[in-house]
């Protein structure tokens, strides 16, 4: 008897809630839909350092990095604008997680290449990952004529391996909100050649970078790299950069101030000669232009279209 009553009640109860909100009948909709967090930064670089973002799968990113001379060089050098250090680079998204890139810098005529892989990806919906974790392995090669090498000494034989340096970096970060992203970057730079045995070949470093989005298309970025003082060669300082990201459709313009001249890891982490306190500040900009070379979802879309036409 009592059971019958409960069944009856249940029957009424289940019939009722449908009235006002039909979609609630589906329960937690889209729970199977996984959506990754995107746009933690406007582009794949904060300023000099890598950001949490990769270029999308199938996208080629052409990057122009430009640093003028130091501001404190005065009027005769037009406050640094007479000089230029550049890096031209190409980055490509091999998969949604994997990005590779190459670059050529005027700083010591260096060619650099890197592989960046996202081990974990922060997600908005459908999974519980709160952070993005990426690993970057980079290599740089000085291609100057032997006599032009900064360490050139006619009495010492030069080996090709002296020209090489490596950098390994982990990037752990989170887009906390639409307007705030923060990332930490513990890393190691390995130099094959150092001035003498008192200097470390392996230079530990810790970077921190963040951005605050001001409007839909403008953000402020900053980054700082700390290197233990005994690991830096004399005359080199820690790198600090701050600037704006301005996005205009297919381009991202980054305008910034930095004390670093070079734009690859060995250069800006371990060979920054500028000091902010002395006014050794470069005005600089990066321009990023993306080209979609390959549309990874084209096939799936085509299949759906054919299916629809077949049915229609």
């Amino acid at each position: 008897m009592r059971q019958l009553f409960i069944v009856a009640l249940l029957g009424v109860a289940t019939a009722l809630p449908a009235q006002d909100d039909l979609l609630s009948l589906l329960g937690e909709e889209e729970e199977d839909l996984v959506i990754m967090t995107d746009a933690s930064f406007k582009t794949t670089r904060v300023i000099n350092s890598h950001s949490l973002e990769n270029v999308a799968h199938g996208v080629l990113d052409f990057k122009i990095g430009h640093r003028f001379g130091f501001l404190n060089e005065g009027f005769n050098e037009f406050f640094g604008l007479d000089q230029a250090t550049i890096r031209l680079g190409l980055d490509y998204g091999v998969t949604p997680q994997l990005m590779v890139g190459i670059g050529r810098s005027s700083y010591q005529k260096t060619v650099d290449g890197f592989v960046k892989y996202k081990l974990l990806r922060q997600c908005d919906q459908g999974c519980n990952m709160p952070i993005t974790l990426a690993g970057v392995a980079a290599m740089s090669m000085n291609t100057q004529e032997e006599e032009d090498l900064p360490w050139y000494d006619p009495t010492v034989e030069n080996y090709f391996s002296h020209r090489l340096a490596y950098s390994f970096q982990l990037i752990a970060g989170r887009k906390f909100s639409e307007s705030f992203t923060l990332q930490l970057m513990p890393g190691l730079v390995h130099k094959n050649l150092v001035p003498d045995s008192t200097y470390a070949h392996d230079i530990l470093n810790m970077g921190v970078a963040g951005r605050i989005k001001l409007t839909k298309r403008v953000a402020i970025n900053a980054e700082y790299f700390y290197v233990p003082p005994d690991m830096l060669e004399d005359g080199y300082y820690n790198s600090f950069s701050i600037g704006f990201d301005i996005e205009t459709g297919g381009h991202v313009f980054q305008l910034h101030a930095t004390n670093s001249t070079g734009m690859f890891e060995r250069a800006y982490i371990t060979e920054t000669v500028g000091q902010w306190s002395e006014g050794d500040i470069h005005f600089g900009f990066n321009i990023s232009r993306v080209f979609t070379l390959h549309d990874p979802k084209a096939k799936a879309r085509e299949r759906i279209r054919e299916q629809e036409q077949g049915e229609g």
């Binding site: 959506i35 999308a56 799968h57 199938g58 996208v59």
Partner: peptide, 13 residues
């Protein structure tokens, strides 16, 4: 109901 983030474009950007 359509989730805005579920719209797929040819270009990721």
């Amino acid at each position: 109901a359509a989730l805005i983030k579920a719209f797929e474009f040819e270009k990721a950007l």
